[in-house]
Structure formats: C-alpha cells, structure tokens
C-alpha cells in the first residue's frame, strides 16, 4: 500500500506544483504555456533519462553539462567550417560516445570513484569546449536552428526527439538483458559479479548511453538557443540529477524508471522555473531554488530508501 503510494509520489508532487502555479497566475494553465513547457522540458528530460541510467547502476555523472557544451562546440565549429548540417548532427552523438567511453574507462579500468572522475571531467570538458570556441559565442546558421520549430505530424520536433529517446531508454531498461543487468549491478555490484555479469563492461556501456543522451539533449538545446555561448550547458547536471531523483530513481542504485519517472521529474523541474518566470519571481533567486530542489530530492530519496531498507 505505502509502496504504491510512494511510487505515485512524483506524479502527486507534479500535480500539486501545477495546481499552485495555476492559482498564482492565470498565464500558467493555458495550452500555449503547456506546449511551451513541454518543449522546454524536452532536453531536460533526455538528460534526466541518461542520468537515471547512470544512477540505476549506482554511479553518477556530474559532467553532463560540460559534455553537452563540448558536443555543441564541436558541432558549431563544424557548422561554421563546412556549413554542413548533417555532418554536425552526426558529430554530436559521436562526441557524446567518446566522452562516455572515457568516463566509463576512468570508472571501470582506472577504478576512480564515479563522482571524482566526472567532476574532474566537468572542468576538463568545459575547458576543451572553451578552447574550441575560444570563449566566444558562435551564432549558428538558420538551417540548423530551424529544427527547433520543425514539426513531425503536428508535434514539435524537440518533443518528438525526447519521446523517442525516452522510449528507447525505457526499452533498454525494461526489455533488454543490458537493462536488467544494470538493475542487478546497481543493487549489489559484487553479487552481480558472482551471478556471472560482466560488471565493468556494463558500467562502461552505461556511460556510453549517458554520453549519447548528453549529445541529444545538447542538440535540442542548441537548436532552441541558436548559439553556442560559453555558458552553454552550465549547471545542467544539477537539474538532471534533481529530475532523475524527483522522478523516483534512487541515488543508491537499482530502483527507478525512465518513463514515467525521469520524464515527470524533468517536467517538474522545468515547471518550477516556468512558473517562477510567469509569476515574475526575482530571477536572482533561481540558483538558490535549483539548489533547494536538489536538496529536497536528496532528502526524499533518503527517506524513501530508509523506509524500505527497514522493511
């Protein structure tokens, strides 16, 4: 009974937040705003999906914002140099895969603690991206940014991309041996090893998935913003972790979901800032609120975890 209730908790919180904002401002509960909100949330949802995967395996990736930035920098450089949009679109996931591969190697082969490795990488990749862009904002051609307004069967492209990615991730998580083994590893890595799972390879692949998700999220954000600014992707890791954990993924590994979990979490986090925007909140409070949301998420996770641990 309690377990069922707790499983619905992210959804309930989402409803409560939405209800509160619609009381505060009439601009919130409109179709236009809902569409706007979902479009805004699409890149956050992809990031949160990738983060959920990493968290399911009981690891963490603090460098997602920098990976986004680095992939965007490479794409921007290619766009400006060769003026070929397909090249840029292909390059982004490749960059993501490479970043993920390196992180995976650092965590498995070199044996670093995941948060240390990815924290250092956060700075290294940001530095590498700044190097490519030379700390200047790169304005991208309209044929690239046009993707933000494109539609597929009447739905905005960003939302479609996010949905497809999340569905693919859910399939990976629920319906493949890889996903099931991640859950086992996240629950207890040593037992998983004893049960015959190649833990190192699986964790390495988890970081690949995370890298690709960063690249996809980077692509969505890039088309929406139209420029590679030096602060592109900064602090996105915080939102991703908050979204994943608010969506019900445990920080201690093994439990969680991509759909609906990560999606709800991402919408929730985006909604908070969308709502604050609409009620004309002091923009200087936003970082403060981000931090509070993460802290809230961690506390929720701790409570949830303890509740079931004593069972």
């Amino acid at each position: 009974m309690t377990r069922k209730l707790v499983a619905q908790l992210p959804f309930i919180v989402l409803l409560v937040v939405a209800f509160t904002f619609s009381l505060l401002t009439p601009k919130f509960a409109t179709t236009a705003n809902a569409a706007n909100l979902l479009t805004q949330a699409s890149s956050a949802a992809v990031l949160a999906g990738g983060m959920s995967f990493v968290l399911l395996a009981s690891c963490i990736d603090l460098s997602v914002g920098s990976q986004m930035f680095f992939a965007a920098a490479v794409a921007g450089k290619l766009l400006l140099a060769y003026e070929s949009v397909p090249l840029a679109i292909v390059a982004m996931p490749l960059v993501g895969v490479c970043c993920g591969a390196v992180h995976g190697l650092l965590v498995t082969w070199a044996g670093l603690a995941p948060f240390i490795a990815t924290m250092a990488s956060l700075f290294v990749l940001r530095g590498a991206g700044l190097w490519l862009t030379e700390t200047r904002a790169m304005n991208l051609p309209a044929e690239f940014t046009g993707y933000a307004d494109a539609t597929v069967a009447g739905f905005p492209l960003p939302i479609v991309i996010a949905c497809v990615t999340l569905l693919a991730l859910t399939y990976l998580h629920r319906r493949t041996a890889f996903g099931r083994q991640i859950v086992a590893i996240g629950h207890d890595r040593e037992e998983a090893y004893k049960a015959g799972i190649n833990c190192s390879r699986t964790i390495w692949q988890v970081y690949l998935v995370s890298g690709v998700c960063c690249a996809i999220a980077g692509f969505i954000s890039l088309t929406q913003l139209g420029t590679v600014s030096p602060s592109f992707g900064r602090d996105r890791e915080f939102n991703a972790i908050a979204a994943a954990v608010l969506g019900g993924t445990s920080l201690s590994g093994g439990t969680g979901s991509i759909l609906p979990g990560a999606a709800i979490g991402a919408i929730l986090v985006t909604m908070v800032f969308n709502g604050l925007n609409l009620i004309d909140a002091n923009p200087y409070t936003y970082p403060l609120i981000t931090g509070t949301v993460i802290l809230f998420a961690i506390l929720c996770d701790a409570v949830r975890h303890r509740h079931f641990a004593t069972r």
Partner: peptide, 17 residues
C-alpha cells in the same frame, strides 16, 4: 558530495540573490 554540491548551489545562489 551530493549534500555539499546542492549546498554550493544554494549558498552561491543566496549570495547572488
């Protein structure tokens, strides 16, 4: 690391605020 990370956001955010 999570506690202090979120605290970094909160404190830095408070300073800006």
């Amino acid at each position: 690391f999570l506690v202090t990370m979120s605290s970094m956001m909160i404190l830095g955010g408070a300073a800006v605020w």
